[in-house]
Design a protein around this nucleic acid. Structure first.
Lengths: 114, 114
DNA sequence: TCTATATTTCCATAAATATAGAAACGTTGT
DNA sequence: ACAACGTTTCTATATTTATGGAAATATAGA
């Protein structure tokens, strides 16, 4: 993961329709949802949905798998996890944290146990 | 946290310069960095930096605190944590996960222990 | 092969965002 | 009051992004 990569992923999420799409896919889990189902659930015109799905898959935050006439989209959980790791890299490195208190409320500091 | 809010935060990170600024602030920890220090570290003109800092503070992902002539910016870790929670809300709800295996590689499923 | 269905690509248009120089604004020390 | 410094606002310009109708493509079943 590098900056360029992270920006592409974040930009793919930084838009109302796409964020909703992604959240639907997170909820749907690994088996995903067909494009048409997403279009109905979120009430988005086909061409617009297709544009957004392309953005998400280009960011590799979502993967597509064709099954018959349907194309199933699902969230790429591993990519999301990598992104979170990148965002929190070297968290609070410059602060000598006094005591065991994590400097940033927990979640972010997962990997900085030293 | 709602979609609108999350989009603003994500958009504030979805840009090379701003992502780098945020990561510097994550590394700097709660005490933060003065605007000028960031400008030097990242080699960004003052006006451009100011524009980006405004975006980040508007998203409330970064907070500003004036001390004398300097303005110190620091990462709002709690807001970042809220965002992560929002992104992973109801993760894999629709999948009856067989066994104890988390459906999405760990990190994302933190809160879905049931 | 013909038809229906699922999805994407093409296209034009509208809107939002990034950039950086110059000028302005606060704060501090003299 | 003045000068120096840190930072922001103003401004214009260039670039990127979103939207959705219409046409094209792909798959499946009769």
């Amino acid at each position: 993961m590098d900056t360029k990569n992270a920006v592409i992923i974040l930009a793919s999420l930084a838009q109302g329709a796409r964020l909703e799409i992604f959240r639907q896919l997170v909820q749907a889990g690994p088996s995903g949802l067909a494009a048409g189902d997403i279009a109905i659930k979120l009430n988005i015109p086909g061409s617009t949905l297709s544009f957004h799905l392309k953005e998400l898959t280009h960011a590799e935050l979502v993967t597509a798998k064709q099954t018959g006439r349907f194309i199933y989209y699902s969230a790429a959980f591993n990519v999301m996890n990598d992104l979170l790791g990148y965002l929190t890299e070297n968290c609070c490195q410059l602060e000598k944290s006094s005591s065991e208190n994590l400097c940033c409320d927990g979640l972010l500091c997962n990997e900085v146990a030293s």
